[in-house]
Design a binder for these strands. Structure first.
Lengths: 258, 258
DNA sequence: GGGGTACTGTTCGAGTGTGTTCGAATTAGT
DNA sequence: ACTAATTCGAACACACTCGAACAGTACCCC
């Protein structure tokens, strides 16, 4: 068995069961403890799991599918931050806005906790947490209901129905992929439903997507590219894509992560 | 089980139910009392919980500075646990139930994670967390939406509307007070609204209230005493109150925390 | 063949987690 | 208010776990 395969198997196991022991794995794969420790170290270096005495656990307790929240937020920090800061500049005190689930919107939330009298609607528990921890009495945070996905988003008919009763000034939508043909996409069918409901409830749609999202196509389309009022991305975008987006999207904002 | 996992589990439990007992945890995880104490000490050092005589509680929101208060809340655990266990016995596989917010219902949630094919509706983030952490794919957990109260309950029109579309077999309602005149009460007006919506959505109403709740009157009434189909309490109730409840409530269940 | 790289196993001293014992401190009962 | 029952934490012993260092094996490229 290749080291690579073994490490992948270990990672699966950690994600499935929440934790593994070194001695257990060593016996199972017929290798020494030291080898398993080195595997765990390699995986921990990439932020995929957390080493602890005796074995390893998931990096943030409770992430079973698609790259976990904590792990993913390590990547492309610069781009995400720059995009979030630009988006935050579009929000004024007293606005009623919606934030979809995702790492970029969570980053944006961090930058919005100081905006007075904000009303925020979100289907993301981590995003709601950001505001809640800030504890500002003048801000209102509304969680949509629903069932919870592995990435801590709330989805399903309850969420869609809750959103249907609300009307927002602006929606900040974080997406997993965008392409000419499929538009903005996400890997989770239920999440696409909720996002579509958010789009309907909002006056203006602001999409947040760093350049790595271009060409990625999730299983489920949310809305076509042109539906966005504003698209905020970074300057890593190839020239062809940038030209196409300039023509398609009413307002294309390209930030520079410096 | 890894030490790290055990500590994470303990922390979850403290956050969900408000308190834990050393002996309880030792029996549950099959380790010695000393080990649990060391776990609690490690968590307390990181400021994640507060150690008290007999166990630990959440790191106090404000009011718990008087000596004895925190310790008492840990000791009353016996009643809560006994009530929760009795309530858990009323649930069958495949049921669709609702749990209100509160420490007693969080305790009940701990005892329901092993029930197959359960559907649970709740407006409490900690309660939802308990099921989510268990990660059973056959169970469905629906969070109602809404704004968050300091006690991590979701309230407001969004929550009420979400509940209005659902129909449950049974509601387990934790209350803050009960009295002959005011019925079951809670100190939070918005929470009373949500609880009333839950009562409407459920076929049967099961109220959970330890004996210390008798005579306490929160600012807002939920429903009159007689509206409950079952009331589960403990044997600390004074004779007069017990007689009155026996006559008023269709089914009064008195458990013995031994 | 020589040299490099990646992976693995072994050894060993240091570190960590756990159970037990026991005297002190806290709490409960009457 | 006094006594009995819990609970606490310090100290010790033991087993397990860790990581550094060194050495061996396999494979690839030149």
């Amino acid at each position: 068995m290749l080291a690579q395969q073994r490490q992948a198997a270990i990672l699966d196991r950690v994600r499935a069961t929440g934790g593994v022991r070194v001695t257990e794995l060593a016996a199972e794969y017929g290798v020494s403890d030291m080898t398993i420790r080195r595997d765990l170290e390699a995986l921990a270096d990439r932020g995929l799991l957390a080493k602890v005495h005796g074995g390893a656990t998931t990096v943030s307790p409770g992430s079973a599918h698609e790259p976990g929240f904590a792990a993913k937020s390590v990547r492309q920090r610069g781009e995400k931050t720059a995009i979030a800061m630009r988006a935050a500049a579009m929000v004024s005190p007293g606005d009623a806005i919606a934030l979809s689930a995702g790492t970029t919107t969570a980053e944006l939330a961090q930058r919005l906790v100081d905006v007075p009298s904000l009303t925020v609607v979100t289907n993301s528990i981590p995003v709601a947490d950001v505001f809640y921890r800030a504890g500002r009495p003048d801000q209102t945070v509304v969680l949509t209901g629903g069932t919870r996905t592995p990435s801590d988003a709330l989805v399903g008919p309850v969420a869609v129905a809750a959103i249907g009763t609300l009307h927002l000034d602006m929606l900040f939508l974080g997406v997993h992929g965008m392409s000419e043909r499929a538009g903005y996409t996400t890997p989770n069918l239920m999440e696409a439903d909720v996002n579509r409901a958010l789009v309907e409830a909002a006056e203006r749609l602001v999409v947040l997507a760093d350049h790595t999202k271009w060409g990625t196509v999730g299983i489920s389309s949310i809305v076509p590219l042109a539906r966005a009022d504003v698209l905020i991305t970074d300057d890593g975008l190839e020239a062809g894509a940038r030209d196409l987006l300039t023509e398609t999207v009413p307002e294309l904002v390209v930030v520079n992560p410096q």
